[in-house]
Simulated assay, not measured.
Amino acid sequence: MNYTLHQLQIFLKVAEVKSITKASEELNLTQPAVSIQIKNLQNQFDIPLTEVIGKQLYVTDFGLEIVEIAKNILNEVQKINYLTMSFKGILSGKLNLSVVSTGKYVIPYFLSDFLKINPGIDLNMDVTNKLKVIKSLEKNEVDFALVSVLPKKITLNSEILLDNKLYLIGNKEVIIPNKPYGKSIFNTIPLIYREEGSATRLIMEQFFERNEIKAPMKMQLTSNEAVKQAVIAGLGYSIMPLIGSNNELKNKELQIIPVFGFPITSDWRLVWLKNKSLSPVAQAYLDYIKKEKEVIVQNHFSWIYTL
């Protein structure tokens, strides 16, 4: 057997995306280079690792077994690298984060300088929906999660990073009144909702419930980006986090519709399991956040507090 770590890395990516073309794009390699490495790896075995049915690539049962072994091999190699850096006094290891979708506008600013200071740390960050974020916390798969609504059934520690302000948003053609609308406006406008389980939708529905507002749903969309495009196109209005709409507001594609009782507010929080033993990398990140968060907010998010 003469397979290499490089071949195993490429095979893992091909198995993940189920495509030579996509794997080459994500690995920044040419398609022929990926194909050659997969062929060289396959030549080590008498049993197929992959098969093509129609135009779709599939990993065989044998290939899936090799995938798991390859993961273990590469993880052990990574541990050697971390150990080497540790003996040199360099903080090293993995930092695992799970972030709700709108949090992608927040978390990079709370990571950038930390990762520059600590080049030995590898970041593994999953940007996904709220339900998957909660599952990753429940299964103890991540060091931290970023949420705007605390889950009720998990005991967590948390560190507040930033205010989360939500406004009623319309497109550039909406005529803004001289004084804010009353809450009865929600009975008369076509309102675009996020999908069930979304933190944005939960905050919105809690506001409606507290104020005994009936707000008919015009349509339901599964991401903030989709909602923004629908509002820009004039399909309706939506209650949206300011953090994800700043560029469109600056470009005057969207505008805030003034309503009494707005903005609705919550907090962007870094959360972790109550009794979790933090790794040295995770503890270092938490210490960094506690020390630097006010400076980060001032440098990158002060505009939130001027509206």
Rank of each mutant, 00 (worst) to 15 (best):
residue 166 L to V: 07
residue 72 N to R: 14
residue 183 K to Y: 04
residue 51 E to V: 10
residue 229 Q to W: 14
residue 151 P to I: 02
residue 93 G to F: 12
residue 12 L to E: 08
residue 278 L to R: 04
residue 46 D to I: 12
residue 3 Y to S: 12
residue 175 I to M: 08
residue 277 S to V: 14
residue 111 L to V: 07
residue 79 K to C: 11
residue 94 K to M: 09
residue 64 L to H: 03
residue 254 L to Y: 05
residue 264 I to H: 03
residue 108 P to M: 06
residue 85 M to Q: 15
residue 102 T to E: 14
residue 232 I to A: 00
residue 303 W to A: 00
residue 80 I to E: 14
residue 301 F to V: 07
residue 225 E to K: 15
residue 104 K to W: 08
residue 248 E to C: 01
residue 202 L to M: 08
residue 42 Q to T: 06
residue 282 A to W: 00
residue 78 Q to L: 06
residue 251 N to F: 09
residue 200 T to F: 07
residue 158 S to P: 03
residue 213 I to T: 01
residue 138 E to P: 02
residue 214 K to F: 15
residue 60 T to K: 12
residue 104 K to D: 09
residue 285 Y to M: 03
residue 170 G to H: 01
residue 192 I to C: 00
residue 282 A to N: 06
residue 151 P to A: 00
residue 287 D to P: 10
residue 248 E to Q: 01
residue 283 Q to T: 13
residue 29 L to G: 09
residue 132 K to L: 08
residue 245 S to L: 00
residue 267 D to Y: 03
residue 42 Q to Y: 03
residue 29 L to R: 13
residue 210 R to P: 01
residue 175 I to R: 10
residue 104 K to A: 11
residue 86 S to D: 11
residue 131 L to W: 12
residue 121 I to L: 08
residue 71 K to D: 01
residue 113 D to L: 13
residue 142 V to T: 10
residue 79 K to W: 08
residue 250 K to P: 00
residue 181 Y to T: 06
residue 128 T to Y: 13
residue 152 K to Q: 14
residue 82 Y to Q: 11
residue 295 V to G: 10
residue 111 L to C: 01
residue 199 A to K: 00
residue 93 G to A: 05
residue 187 N to F: 15
residue 93 G to R: 03
residue 165 K to W: 02
residue 47 I to K: 15
residue 83 L to P: 07
residue 134 I to C: 04
residue 104 K to Q: 13
residue 88 K to R: 15
residue 223 S to T: 15
residue 227 V to C: 08
residue 69 I to F: 11
residue 110 F to M: 08
residue 72 N to H: 06
residue 94 K to S: 12
residue 232 I to M: 02
residue 84 T to M: 15
residue 155 T to P: 03
residue 301 F to I: 01
residue 38 I to D: 06
residue 32 P to M: 09
residue 35 S to F: 12
residue 148 S to K: 09
residue 223 S to R: 08
residue 274 K to T: 09
residue 260 F to L: 14
residue 301 F to M: 04
residue 241 P to M: 03
residue 169 I to Q: 00
residue 253 E to L: 06
residue 20 I to Q: 12
residue 130 K to M: 10
residue 98 S to W: 09
residue 230 A to G: 00
residue 219 M to A: 11
residue 71 K to S: 03
residue 262 F to A: 01
residue 109 Y to K: 13
residue 215 A to G: 07
residue 105 Y to W: 07
residue 41 L to K: 04
residue 184 S to H: 12
residue 230 A to R: 02
residue 22 K to R: 14
residue 70 A to N: 11
residue 13 K to L: 13
residue 90 I to S: 05
residue 227 V to T: 15
residue 165 K to N: 10
residue 204 M to L: 05
residue 111 L to Y: 06
residue 277 S to A: 13
residue 125 M to D: 01
residue 156 L to Y: 04
residue 50 T to S: 05
residue 191 L to M: 01
residue 266 S to G: 10
residue 290 K to M: 14
residue 109 Y to A: 11
residue 17 V to F: 07
residue 294 E to W: 08
residue 11 F to N: 00
residue 217 M to W: 05
residue 90 I to P: 02
residue 42 Q to P: 05
residue 34 V to W: 11
residue 182 G to M: 09
residue 8 L to R: 09
residue 247 N to L: 04
residue 207 F to Q: 07
